[in-house]
Amino acid sequence: MRPNPSFPADLRIVMVLVLVTDLFILLPFLSNSPIRTVLGLPLVLFLPGYALIAALFPAKDDLDGIERIALSFGLSIAVVPLLGLGLNYTPWGIRLVPVLVSISVFTLGMSLIAITRRKGLGENAFCVPFGKMYASLRDELATERRSGLDLILSIVLVVSILLSAVTLVYVVVTPKQGERFTEFYILGPGGMADNYRTRLVLGESVDVIVGVVNHEYQPVNYSLEIRLDNESMEVPENYRHISLGHNSTWEQALSFAPPVTGSDMKLQYLLYREDNMSEPYRDLHLWISVMEADNLTGQEMPAAV
């Protein structure tokens, strides 16, 4: 039976895949499923190019099947970055939802154009004969004239293709873990890695922004300690218990007023993992000087470093 030229099966599949992928990405209860990745790869790497090729070359004599598939991958890799470049100059920017919408609209739009152009070609319109392909494969496997060896080889080939597909999906859905580490940093009051106030009058505070980023591929509990010349100082309770999931960031402002005077004192910020509180996991420090207010009489106020 000839495929319906008014709604070609291949473009119908393309449009359904686009809409299903959008659902798996946008709906919260589906977005954490590994199926999202499996569907997202064709949406980025194949479907836009296939729809564009279908719109540009609607006749069956324009290109053969292999050329269409190869160009579909190549044009997808070219079109998607161009869509992202265009979004960069819009108020929406390059974010998940704008990128998803732009790719989906482009693919659906090209598919509709391809359907319209194929209608005007009649019998000369390109179509993918899924029915004939299935019937041919079924007859090839079921024919009584096939030898036992040929049948076994055909079954092995089909199983090998299925195993290859399953392996590819597994590799894509289960990304390889990189190096495990934790970022630990302190920033000045302006949110930059400079302008730390290190020359103080007794009673003034060192104001910094403390940041922790978990790249450990697992949830981790951290604790923060402050030491001044190896003497442990009191820190707020919420700095003693910091729980972070993988790729999560914790950043808070922290003020510490040194209780003693001295020159070139070592102010340490120590980060511990709760599975090892005996030694710091990360260590940062500043050198500070603190003087009595009476010592400033007739002197210029120390400048911030």
Rank of each mutant, 00 (worst) to 15 (best):
G65T: 03
F7E: 15
A114K: 06
Q177V: 06
V105I: 13
L71Q: 03
T261W: 00
I77H: 02
V99P: 00
Q177G: 09
H241F: 14
S72Y: 01
E67L: 14
D139L: 12
S6I: 15
F57D: 03
M15Y: 05
K266C: 03
G298E: 03
Y170R: 04
P280E: 05
T116D: 15
R138G: 03
F106D: 04
G148S: 11
D10C: 03
E67R: 11
S72C: 02
Y89A: 13
P91H: 06
V212T: 09
I94Y: 13
T143F: 12
S248C: 00
V20P: 10
R180S: 09
I66W: 14
L200W: 05
R273K: 09
H285V: 00
I152G: 08
H241K: 08
S164C: 03
G203T: 00
A70Q: 05
G40D: 05
L63W: 08
Q299Y: 12
S205H: 01
V166I: 10
V156G: 03
L202T: 03
M1R: 15
R36M: 07
R36L: 04
V44I: 13
D150C: 01
I288E: 00
M277Y: 02
S232E: 14
A304E: 11
V290M: 07
R199N: 11
V305F: 10
L11G: 08
V20C: 11
L52D: 00
S255D: 12
G122W: 10
L96Y: 02
P48I: 07
L56N: 06
I103T: 02
Y89I: 09
A193I: 13
T107N: 06
L96F: 13
L284T: 02
R68D: 09
D22T: 13
E183W: 01
P28Q: 04
L45W: 03
E225W: 12
A135G: 11
W92E: 09
L267P: 00
P8L: 12
S104K: 10
G191E: 01
N247K: 05
V305D: 12
L47W: 07
L87M: 14
E251L: 13
K176W: 07
W250R: 08
Y269D: 07
I94V: 14
V220L: 11
N88E: 14
F24W: 09
